[in-house]
């Protein structure tokens, strides 16, 4: 039996190891299990069998309301946000070639935050319907600013990160200015948004997020091989014929589109974009074709489980999911850095 599996045509090219395939399958099963358990847990416990029955339309009436109206949209949103953030982080780490890059480190999240907090504090009467598009635009504009400022006969990954860190500080300053100058009754709302929450997600959120995330995932997948090339370093990538700057820009666009959409719906959930890709790389290695789906699932798992804890552990309090992604993510991240220090 061959150790590798090759999937290749005009626009696709993957080299998957058999081991990766196995890992992916196990992870998919785990994600589904977590999904089902998460749906079943809460104020009213529903057994996994009943959850699956209800999902396929054969459940009892009393479960249908709870699952379909309250829990399912929220958990789907958590899943999609996790996948989007994690993949966004994988792309960034691939093109910047540094395991510490992620949307919340290089300022993309903070740009989105300024847009969202500005909307929440300066126009408190505007419908929350506008929050997602405004946030997405904020993320895009800030990413564009970072890219332009980092441009000097092309963009190097180092400049991109460092400029991002600088811009992040400006954005954080503007955010805190907005918070401090706004009326005090608005601040808790803003704080919750900054921490990140999927509380009160509805089917509308799902219907916006789902097609967008899937489209972006597919496009990213198609561009997977360019990430593999970029990971070798600019010189080698240029040497094997890759238009380095253009590919980097396109991949950056995917990364921002994914992160922006996730933040637009769920707020500034931190550490998923940093942690997800790390764990995924640990599981299947850096080859992007295998990394991407695994990274998406790991991210989905992190956010789903964090939200499960936030919903249930301190009941009746429903704590924002961002608290747990950072409380679990941050120490674990430091541990990972320490463990992989010589790689």
């Amino acid at each position: 039996m061959k150790k590798q599996l090759v999937i290749r045509n005009e626009s696709f090219s993957f080299l998957l190891e058999r081991k990766t395939l196995l890992t992916t399958t196990i992870l998919a099963i785990l994600t589904f299990a977590a999904f089902v358990v998460s749906i079943g847990t809460g104020e009213m416990y529903i057994s996994p069998i009943n959850v699956i029955k209800t999902l396929f339309g054969a459940g009892e009436k009393q479960y249908e309301l709870v699952i379909e109206t309250f829990r399912l949209p929220r958990i789907l949103v958590a899943l999609l946000i996790g996948a989007a953030l994690s993949v966004s982080g994988s792309i960034l780490q691939g093109i910047i070639r540094n395991p510490l890059a992620s949307p919340d480190i290089v300022g993309i999240t903070h740009g989105a935050s300024v847009a969202a907090v500005g909307l929440l504090t300066l126009f408190p009467t505007v419908s929350v319907f506008w929050l997602p598009p405004v946030t997405l635009i904020g993320a895009g504009v800030v990413a564009a600013i970072i890219y332009l400022l980092a441009w000097k006969d092309g963009v190097t990954p180092i400049r991109l990160v460092l400029i991002g860190v600088g811009i992040k500080e400006v954005m954080a300053a503007i955010t805190s200015l907005l918070v401090v100058t706004s009326p005090i009754y608005l601040t808790p709302k803003v704080q919750i948004w900054i921490t990140g929450t999927v509380y009160g997600s509805n089917w509308e959120n799902v219907s916006v997020l789902l097609p967008w995330v899937i489209l972006m995932l597919i496009l990213t997948m198609m561009y997977g091989r360019t990430v593999n090339v970029l990971q070798l370093g600019d010189d080698i990538a240029a040497g094997v014929g890759s238009p380095v700057s253009r590919h980097r820009l396109i991949l950056l666009f995917f990364s921002v589109a994914l992160a922006g959409a996730a933040i637009a719906i769920g707020g500034a959930i931190s550490f998923v974009g940093l942690l997800g890709p790390h764990i995924a790389r640990k599981l299947v290695g850096p080859s992007f074709g295998g990394l991407l789906p695994v990274s998406a699932m790991v991210g989905a798992l992190i956010v789903m489980l964090s939200d499960l804890i936030g919903r249930t552990a301190f009941s009746p309090l429903d704590l924002p999911v961002g608290i747990f992604t950072s409380a679990i993510g941050a120490p674990f991240f430091i541990y990972l850095l320490f463990k992989n220090r010589n790689q």
Partner: peptide, 26 residues
């Protein structure tokens, strides 16, 4: 580069901890 990124990561960590406390304690 590594120091700056490590600083950014640690900042992200502590500031999200700070936000977490503030969210639960008005």
């Amino acid at each position: 580069l590594k120091l700056t990124l490590a600083g950014a990561a640690v900042t992200a960590m502590f500031s999200s901890f700070t936000h977490a406390i503030l969210v639960t304690n008005e």
